[in-house]
Design a protein around this nucleic acid. Structure first.
Lengths: 338, 338
DNA sequence: ATGAAAGCGCTAACAC
DNA sequence: GTGTTAGCGCTTTCAT
C-alpha cells in the first residue's frame, strides 16, 4: 500500500508545469511532442495514474452511471446488468451496480448513494411500480434517468419490452398448437411488467372470445408460487390446456406442479414462460419462453442516457420480444394419438 | 437537473462559517446546539447534501469497497454479492460491483477502474487461478485486498470454503447411502475451487481405497458439460453408482444425462452437487448439494478488509460447508428391491 | 505551446 | 465552540 504520486510530482520530475502534464493526460489541448515524451517518461517512472476523484471534482463529471436493480438474485437481472455494462463500457462509462433487494427503502438509499457519488446518470429498474416513484423522480431532478424493464413513473424515460406483443406471441403460438383453454399465472403487481402482462393477457383473451380472460391467478415471481398455482388450476379449471406464465420461474413451478399431479406437459397442458432465462433449458421438459430483447434494451437505455437530446420530453421505447419455442408448448392434440 | 448548493451557500444562509457546517455534517466535532439548528434549517431550505467526491478528496477515503466477481450470471455469485453488500452496508461502506465476465483482461480493467475510483478496499473472486494473480497483486500494493471464494495468490488474504470438508461431506454421505463406485465430474481448472475440489476428491478416494480416485472427468462449470459427462460415465464405468460434481450446474446436467440414458437417479446412481444454488430445488429429482457458508464468508471477508490489524501477513480463512440432503442422493440399495 | 494561479466542495489544523 | 485558511489532485482560464 504505497503513496501515490500526483500530477505535481510528475511535473517536477519532468521539469514542466502541472498544466502540461494535465494536458497530456486529458489530451484535449495541443501539446508539444517533446513535452509529451518527457511527461510520459516521468509518469512511467513514478507510476503515475491520474486521480479520478480529483478530476471528477474539477470536471463535474465522473463518466460513470449507476444501475439499480430490484434483485440481482432474480435470473433476468444479471443478464440485463451484463448487457448494460457492455454497452456503457463501449460508450466510455463505467457502471456502479446497486441491488435494492426488492425493498423501496433500500432502493431509495441506493439512489441517494449513487447520486452522492456523482454518477452522470442513473439506470433503474424500479422494484415497485408505485412506491418507487418518489425515488425515481427525486433522482431525475439531479441527473438524467432512464427506467429499464420496469417503471414507476411516466415522467422519466422508459425502455421496456412490449407486453402486448409478449403475450400475443405466446398466446398465438399456443393457439397454433391447438390449445383452446387458457389460464394465466402472474404475480400480483408491484412490478410493472407483472401488471402489463396481465392486462395484455386479458385484452388478448377478449379478442379470442371464450373464458380465458377470467382464468387468472396472481402470486409471486417464484417457482413455489407456480407450483401452487398448478394445483389451483387443476382443481378449478378442468378444461385448461394452455397456461401462460408471467415469467420463467413461475412456468417452471407450473410445469412441475402439473407433472406431479399427473398431468402431462405438453401433451395435456402446454405451458409458456417469459424472459427466456436459463431455467428454460435446464427444465424437463424444456420451457417455451418469450425472450426480452436485453441487448437492444441496453442499447436504447444507454443511448437515451448519454445522448443529450435538446428535447427533454420523456420517451417510451417499447421493444419487440421474441418467441423461443421449446418442449413445454408442443401440444399438438392432432398428433397426440401418434 | 438543478444546480446543487454547496457548503458555502449553507454557511452564508445560516450566517455561519463553512467549518461549522462541515462539523455539523461530519459530526465528529463538538458543535453548539443553536448552531446545529441553524445549519440544519439552512441546509433543509437549500436542499443541501454534502458532496461525497469533495469529501473523499479531502479525507482520502470513499467509504466504499469494490467487489469483482468472475461472472454475475453464474448462480453462486449473486448470492455472494448480496451477502457481502449487506455486510458492507452494516459496516458503513457501500459496494461497487464489477463483473469480469470470466476474462482476466476485463478483470484487470475492472480492478484499475475501482482503484482509480479510490475504493478503500477490494474484494475479489479472481476468475483465473493463475492469470488473475497479476491483477490481485497489482491491486494489493495500493489498497487492502481480500480474495473470496476463489484465489489467485497466497500473498493476499483468502476467505474460502473448505474443499476437503466439502468433498468429505458429500463422499461420506454417499457411502452411508450404500454407494461404493465413485466418479467425479469437475471443471478443468481456471478457478481455484475446481482444482481444490478435485484434489480433495482424489485424497478422499485414496483413503477409501478402490478405484474412485481414477474416475475423474473435467470440463466446464455448466449443465451441458454435466450432460456430456453423464454419457462418458455410462460408457466407460459400468460400476459407478455415485457421482460427485464440482458444482450444481454440472450435477444438474449429470442427473439429466443419466436419466435420459435410462439410468435412474438416485436408485441406480446417486449424484451430489456443490454450492447449494437455486437449481438444486427446481431440478427433478431435487439435488443434494454442499452449501458454501456465504454469509460467514461475507462476514470474514468484510472483517479482514475493514478491521486494520497491525499484523499484515496474509490470512487464509477456510470456512466449513454444510451438506443439504435432497432426492438425488437417496440411493439406499438395501431398500431398492422394496 | 507553455506556465501561473484560481477554483471544484470539502476537511482539518490552527487561532481565537 | 467558532472562524480562518491552507490544502486534497486535478482542470482551465488567462497571460506570455
Amino acid at each position: 500500500v504505497r503513496a501515490r504520486s500526483t500530477i505535481r510530482d510528475v511535473a517536477r520530475e519532468a521539469g514542466l508545469s502541472v498544466a502540461s502534464v494535465s494536458r497530456v493526460f486529458s489530451g484535449n489541448r495541443p501539446v508539444g511532442t517533446d513535452v509529451a515524451r518527457r511527461v510520459r517518461a516521468a509518469a512511467a517512472k513514478l507510476d503515475y495514474r491520474p486521480d479520478y476523484l480529483a478530476r471528477s471534482l474539477s470536471l463535474r463529471s465522473t463518466t460513470s452511471v449507476g444501475l439499480v436493480v430490484p434483485d440481482i438474485g432474480s435470473p433476468f437481472f444479471p443478464a440485463l446488468a451484463q448487457a448494460i455494462e457492455g454497452r456503457l463500457r463501449g460508450a466510455g462509462f463505467s457502471m456502479l451496480l446497486m441491488d435494492a433487494q426488492n425493498d423501496p427503502e433500500l432502493e431509495f438509499e441506493a439512489v441517494r448513494e449513487l447520486i452522492a457519488r456523482k454518477v452522470d446518470g442513473l439506470l433503474i429498474s424500479p422494484c415497485h411500480e408505485r412506491i418507487s416513484r418518489g425515488a425515481v423522480e427525486w433522482a431525475m431532478e439531479r441527473v438524467p434517468v432512464v427506467q429499464v424493464d420496469r417503471y414507476a413513473t411516466s415522467r422519466a424515460h422508459r425502455v421496456i419490452s412490449d407486453a402486448t406483443r409478449t403475450i400475443r406471441l405466446a398466446a398465438d403460438h399456443l393457439v397454433e398448437q391447438g390449445c383452446g383453454g387458457f389460464a394465466f399465472v402472474g404475480a400480483s403487481g408491484t412490478a410493472s411488467p407483472a401488471r402489463d402482462r396481465k392486462r395484455a393477457y386479458v385484452a388478448r383473451m377478449r379478442q379470442y372470445g371464450g373464458a380465458g380472460h377470467t382464468r387468472i391467478l396472481e402470486g409471486a415471481f417464484t417457482a413455489d408460487w407456480g407450483y401452487e398455482a398448478a394445483d389451483l388450476i387443476q382443481t378449478r379449471w378442468a378444461t385448461v390446456d394452455a397456461v401462460i406464465c408471467a415469467n420463467d420461474l413461475i412456468a417452471l413451478g407450473v410445469v412441475q406442479g402439473l407433472t406431479d399431479r399427473g398431468r402431462i406437459v405438453p401433451e395435456q397442458v402446454a405451458v409458456t414462460g417469459c424472459d427466456d432465462t436459463f431455467f428454460t433449458t435446464v427444465s424437463r421438459p424444456t420451457i417455451t419462453s418469450v425472450a426480452q430483447p436485453v441487448v437492444q434494451m441496453a442499447e436504447h437505455a444507454v443511448g437515451l442516457l448519454v445522448t443529450p437530446t435538446g428535447d427533454s420530453r420523456p420517451r417510451t421505447v417499447r421493444l419487440p420480444p421474441a418467441l423461443r419455442v421449446r418442449e413445454s408448448s408442443r401440444h399438438n392434440p392432432g398428433h397426440r394419438s401418434a
